[in-house]
């Protein structure tokens, strides 16, 4: 049995699943639109949570947030479940598939068989959409794959119950009902923008949003003296991996957000001024790419004129400033729309 489901490649797993699932129910939105309405641009630096023994740096909201925000704002009713029992989790999935419901699932990538080996870490926040089952084999629409993939029941069970930081506990989610296939995008876009500005600017603890970027910059200055060259380089590599990992669309979602702002401008009738913000966001994306480029030159060690950690921290600190100004101005502009 296979659900007739339009699979397509996406930049990010969660905005991709959200887009494809809503399109399945007739709500024809793009992936950048899902990212923007879901307020999907974020930054967090959490030195107190470790992944592979290094502090977590993340460019996305916690898994589930984009999907929940977009569906709520577009008037879709959803449901989600976590499980303690693995077999129950698989049976519940089968029942949904039998009813023809494409079902989203959060999985760990370490044991995901079709993932490239080099990208398999104990990272437990990948979103896929399960769209069929034939015998013991499931068909999945993985938004970072160009085609649908197949996965055995045993493998799927294993990745749904991956362990470690943020274990998914078999979490699955699905759309129950869509109230309109042509929802009013205007309020959804505006509240998505305002929420994103709040998330980047207003969280009062220093690990999140632009404050988090500044904090990472500050701590990076001490990495080499505190950790030694080797460990510092590995920690820097982890930052670059998170920034440019499959599923960010490059530059930690910034390019995709620029695409959203351009589309939002058109949806709201043009002349909103959001087009200028799209251009600014693209420039910020370029600054992140420049940071990644300079950081990667450190790994090669051959070239003489590599950036010091202080130099990299300066770049990050500049980005924090750019993003602070960007979201402050965007909030003001969106408040008037």
């Amino acid at each position: 049995m296979k659900i007739n489901f339009e699979h397509s490649l996406a930049a990010h797993c969660e905005s991709g699943v959200t887009r494809s699932m809503l399109r399945h129910y007739g709500v024809k939105i793009s992936e950048p639109m899902a990212l923007g309405i879901g307020a999907g641009v974020f930054f967090s630096y959490m030195p107190f949570i470790k992944l592979h023994g290094m502090p977590v740096v993340s460019f996305r909201p916690l898994p589930g947030h984009i999907f929940a925000r977009v569906t709520r704002r577009l008037g879709a009713r959803i449901s989600s479940r976590r499980f303690l029992n693995k077999d129950k989790a698989m049976r519940a999935l089968d029942r949904l598939l039998e009813k023809g419901t494409p079902t989203g699932a959060i999985v760990g990538v370490f044991y995901l068989p079709y993932f490239p080996k080099e990208y398999r870490f104990h990272f437990n926040a990948h979103n896929i959409c399960i769209i069929g089952k034939e015998g013991d084999v499931y068909t999945v629409s993985d938004p970072v794959s160009v085609v649908t993939n197949e996965i055995s029941s045993a493998d799927l069970k294993r990745v749904r119950f991956a362990k470690g930081t943020w274990p998914p506990m078999g979490k699955m989610y699905w759309v129950k009902h869509v109230s309109s296939t042509e929802p009013d995008l205007r309020p959804a876009i505006l509240s998505g923008i305002l929420l994103n500005c709040r998330r980047m600017l207003d969280i009062p603890i220093p690990f999140f949003g632009v404050k988090g970027i500044a904090m990472l910059a500050d701590s990076m200055r001490q990495w080499e003296s505190k950790l030694g060259a080797r460990k510092a380089a590995l920690q820097l590599a982890q930052v670059i991996r998170m920034l440019e990992e499959i599923g960010t669309g490059g530059a930690g979602f910034r390019y995709m957000y620029a695409a959203f702002l351009q589309e939002a401008d058109a949806v709201l009738g043009g002349e909103t001024g959001l087009g200028i913000f799209a251009v600014r966001m693209t420039a910020i994306g370029d600054a992140w790419r420049d940071f990644a480029f300079e950081a990667a030159r450190k790994f090669k060690r051959r070239s003489e004129d590599v950036c010091s950690y202080n130099g990299l921290a300066d770049k990050l600190s500049d980005i924090a400033g750019l993003e602070r100004a960007f979201f402050t101005d965007l909030r003001e502009a969106a408040g008037k729309l």
Partner: peptide, 17 residues
């Protein structure tokens, strides 16, 4: 060698993402 790809939103000649 896999089916996995990155996807970028990039600007084309007409300025569209």
């Amino acid at each position: 060698s896999t089916t996995i790809r990155d996807l970028y939103y990039a600007v084309d000649d007409s300025g569209q993402y």
